[in-house]
Computed example of a mutant assay.
Amino acid sequence: MLTAGERALNIIQGEHAISRDENVVITTILGSCVSACLFDPVLRIGGANHFLLPDAGTDPAEHRYATAAMEALVRSLLRAGADRGRLEAKLFGGAWRMANLPDIGRRNALAAADFLRKEGIPVVSSDLGGTQARGLRFWPATGHARIQRLGSQMPLPVEKPSTALPMRADRV
């Protein structure tokens, strides 16, 4: 729920949004998709993306894919004045939503974490993996994020997904 004066910017697969307006809240719903929330604490500007798949497929510029979505978000923040050296990241989503399919969520989370590592952007918080969808609210002017678990957990199959990713941080 938004407080008085707040305005929601909802993003869907393949989209991103940035803002420095303290009344803006970027929102999205994540299953196996991943959202990276980036924040420059000095300029007090941030943004979030929402991507669907880890691999570039046939169109590497398509923002439904991890690398293109991550690059687009970083570029938008830099054009708005953010400093790459001050950016910090929070990662959310990456659930394993369908037991009879490969764990795309895990691959999405790994793709985002790998991109950030290569770019030298530290991940300061994350809530990744598991089997439950998440609702995300991100306040880009403060870097604060809030996750709400949605629905029930999917029963895990006999072979559980790897837990090599950090599943949760102390503060979001």
Results as ranks from 00 to 15, higher is better:
I121V: 14
Q132V: 09
N108W: 00
T28R: 03
D40V: 01
D55Y: 00
E62S: 15
E6D: 03
A111S: 14
R86V: 10
A113S: 15
R86E: 02
A111W: 06
A164F: 13
G14N: 05
N100A: 04
D21N: 15
A95Y: 04
L128Q: 10
D127Q: 13
R64N: 12
N108A: 02
I18D: 11
D40A: 10
N23K: 11
K118M: 07
Y65T: 10
T131Q: 08
P60C: 07
G105N: 10
R84F: 06
L87I: 03
V124C: 02
V172I: 04
Y65V: 04
V124D: 02
F51N: 11
L150Q: 06
L87F: 06
D21A: 09
A145M: 08
G94P: 14
P122Y: 09
R84A: 12
D103P: 02
H63K: 12
N10W: 02
I26A: 01
G81E: 07
A113N: 11
S125G: 15
S35G: 07
Q13A: 03
L156Q: 12
R134D: 00
D21L: 02
L136K: 02
A164Y: 10
D83A: 05
L43C: 08
P41E: 08
P155R: 07
A48M: 08
F115K: 03
L101M: 13
N100W: 10
